[in-house]
Design a protein around this nucleic acid. Structure first.
Length: 711
DNA sequence: TACGGGAATATTTTT
DNA sequence: TATTCCCGTA
């Protein structure tokens, strides 16, 4: 059969080599913008054209959306349906496998995936029952979960992990250990899996039941993995099992874009590929089709200061272009103003909103800008940061469905119960108890009849649950029944903004239309693997965290908040390794831009600390020559005098021992001692004790900071 | 016990 | 900004 696609005309030599790779392992090192996605798309098309049944191809991507988009492109090229191609994230695949074979390792169904909020909830309960809840020095539930997850994803034994990653919590080791065991027991007892469990148990399954691994592997003939630099050890192991029967593996990645170290990813994975898979082919894609040369010059310079060795130097076909600029501004407000002005200017010059993006290190860095955009009526979507399914109204709403899918899910039961008026944490806890609420829920609920206030609320709830469990319903049908019940409660709970929340619930119902299987629906929601709003929806500016911007591109890109402590994040500077990852993160951000790139930073932090804190420009930009990165904006001379910021110069610096202080980056802490002038030792709950220069303001109750200087 | 209201507090990144 | 904490009241 004549191939429909003229591969030679549409691909460069290296891309072509990759697309036509013979069987066996292949590693593709693909620089930013080098047509990595394009190559994968053509590879899938090529395989299908060669007669490989689509369902024998497994495409593992970082998000479900990425997989969907690639497959759409394949279909467009071939004019042929490729829905059979298995695509999605490692976590989604793991969940599918565990639902099928989990019973082989003592995980009989139903299995519910719990998200981070649920995990925190569970840990919070345990903290309380272990009597650790009120100890202020003990890590809170969020911190406990972070510790737990980090240790699992690094594959470290528990005790060692605590000492290694969280030495200042080592005194609590026995309690932490008890908590850890309690958490594992809790999940197992109630058939709950957290994100880490999905990968962990899949590996356990593959290891302990080899024939399952073999079956899974044999159901595919070609495995393709995108963003391989961001896989962790567990995921790499999973891949190894999945290709064991055929060895046909193609991974694509870029060591310079490894930005998920906090999740245990290490670019060592990609470096070790040739050793793990002997006789593998290596193909490098260096030609950049995305950005102009001035932007690439910045990217190349940026990464050249890295301590680690990188092999690539990006070069472009479009040498012409405006240089990127770095703009210093006095305050956050001025930064927002500047960005808005430039956006409007570009838009007037003919650039559509969807061709532009603003990127930042952390979700909340865009708050101020969002307000400014709203004022100006600039349409935008925000990606990353807060998640739809983590809203408490969504969680409440879905709880009714969750208990149908998994009657053991006490987290969902508790939510349902607590929505009843007159039923608080205590009674909910009593009802649920330590035992499984399980199938006898109706009996338990009827015990509520004793409380007069609750009696009238019981009837609707019971009949809802009966309807839901009565006959097998489609997810959408079930949700509509629930909505009938829940829509009454919504305005009562969220008086202010229940309309926004109502819209979000309707969005969830819309998503459910694509599903006929309850578990799959809930799983995809928890794994963020559903198709949200249609992609390519027109006319909106994108605001995104850098992490969520991975793999995407825009004509004009703004990167904001390039100050020490924000970008790079103060939380990521403990080790040189973390700092290097921040550098790569900036590299990723910079390489998103096709034509225009603006880097901005305000010189002062928000005035919340009671004074204006002078802030340094991001360390990665300091050594960049002006020819590569021109600087705009005058350094402001309005640095506040020490007297304005620090109210007194008492012998103890005005910071007496025991006083609570607020540091804009470390949060609140307590002064332990003031050993020298202008130096204090402060104990921060989260970061332990630190000696700091007096560069922050005391926390004065009730006293608002001075009015902001006019811009 | 539940719950309202006001204050405190936390904000890295994602599955 | 938005959740979580804490306390007084019913």
């Amino acid at each position: 059969m004549m191939p429909k696609i003229a591969y030679e005309k549409r691909l460069n030599a290296n891309q072509l080599a990759a697309v036509g790779s013979p069987d066996g392992p292949t590693l593709i090192i693909a620089g930013a913008g080098s047509g990595k996605t394009r190559t994968l798309v053509y590879r899938v098309a090529w395989l299908v054209e060669k007669g490989i049944p689509p369902e024998k191809i497994l495409l593992l991507t970082f998000t479900r959306k990425a997989a969907q988009e690639m497959l759409q492109r394949v279909e467009a090229m071939l004019g042929q349906n490729c829905q059979g191609v298995a695509g999605g994230t490692f976590h989604a695949l793991a969940y599918k496998i565990l639902r099928t074979y989990g019973s082989r390792i003592g995980l009989p169904g139903p299995l519910s995936v719990i998200d981070r909020k649920d995990s925190e909830e569970a840990i919070g309960k345990l903290l309380k029952s272990l009597g650790l809840g009120k100890n202020k020095d003990f890590p809170d539930r969020r911190e406990c979960l972070e510790l737990h997850s980090r240790i699992i994803n690094r594959g470290t034994p528990f005790e060692k992990g605590v000492g290694l990653f969280y030495p200042h919590w080592e005194p609590f080791l026995p309690q932490l250990k008890a908590l850890e065991e309690g958490y594992e027991a809790f999940k197992r007892q109630h058939c709950l899996l957290d994100y880490d469990d999905l990968l962990r148990f899949t590996l356990t399954l593959f290891t302990e039941v080899p024939e399952v691994a073999e079956t899974c592997s044999a159901s595919y003939r070609y495995v393709l993995v995108d963003e391989y630099q961001d896989t962790n050890l567990l995921q790499a192991e999973m891949v190894r099992f999945l290709v064991q029967t055929h060895g046909n593996l193609m991974v694509v990645g870029d060591d310079s874009q490894s930005i998920y170290g906090f999740r245990g990813a290490h670019f060592k994975n990609i470096m070790d590929f040739p050793r793990s898979f002997p006789r593998s082919r290596l193909i490098t894609l260096e030609e950049n089709y995305r950005s102009t040369q001035p932007i690439l010059n910045l990217a190349n310079t940026l990464i050249s200061f890295s301590n680690e060795r990188y092999s690539k130097c990006l070069f472009s076909r479009s040498p012409q272009g405006l240089p990127p600029v770095c703009v210093e501004l006095p305050y956050e407000e001025s930064q927002s103003q500047f960005v808005v002005q430039q956006l409007q200017k570009l838009n007037r010059e003919g650039m559509a909103w969807q061709e532009m993006a603003v990127l930042f290190r952390a979700g909340h860095h865009s708050f101020n800008l969002e307000i400014a955009l709203q004022k100006q009526g600039i349409p935008f979507v925000k990606v990353g940061g807060r998640r739809l399914v983590e809203g408490s109204h969504i969680k409440d709403f879905l709880s009714y469905l969750k208990v149908v899918a998994n009657p053991q899910d006490v987290l969902a039961w508790e939510r349902i119960l607590r929505l009843l008026e007159g039923l608080g944490p205590k009674r909910a806890q009593d009802l649920i108890g330590q035992v499984q609420i399980g199938t006898d829920w109706s009996q338990r609920l009827s015990s509520l009849q004793h409380y007069p206030r609750l009696r009238s609320q019981m009837e609707p709830l019971e009949s809802l649950l009966k309807e839901l469990t009565g006959e097998a319903l489609q997810p959408t049908q079930a949700l509509e029944l629930i909505w009938e019940y829940y829509r009454e409660l919504l305005p009562r709970i969220y008086e202010e903004d229940y309309q926004r929340r109502q819209k979000e619930i309707e969005e969830i119902i819309r998503v459910s239309l694509n599903y006929s299987d309850l578990e799959a629906f809930l799983g995809d929601l928890a794994l963020e693997a559903y198709e949200g709003e249609k992609t390519g929806e027109g006319g909106r500016l994108t605001l995104s965290t850098v992490h969520s911007a991975k793999g995407l591109e825009w004509k004009a890109v703004f990167i904001i908040w390039l100050t020490e402590g924000r970008f790079p994040s103060i939380h990521a500077l403990e080790t040189a390794e973390e700092t290097e990852e921040e550098r790569r993160l900036l590299y990723v951000a910079v390489t998103r831009a096709k034509e225009r790139l603006f880097l901005t930073y305000p010189q002062a932090l928000s005035p919340r600390a009671g004074g204006w804190q002078h802030h340094e420009i991001c360390r990665f930009l300091t050594p960049i020559p002006k020819e590569i990165l021109p600087r705009l904006g005058e350094p402001t001379s309005s640095e506040p005098s020490k007297k304005e910021v620090y109210p007194s110069s008492d012998p103890d610096n005005g910071f007496p021992v025991g006083m609570r202080v607020f540091h804009p980056l470390f949060g609140t802490g307590v002064i332990q001692e003031a050993p020298r002038e202008r130096k204090v030792r402060v104990l921060f709950k989260r970061y332990g004790s630190k000696v700091l220069h007096l560069d922050f303001a005391p926390l004065e109750k009730g006293e608002a900071p001075d009015a902001r200087p006019a811009l």
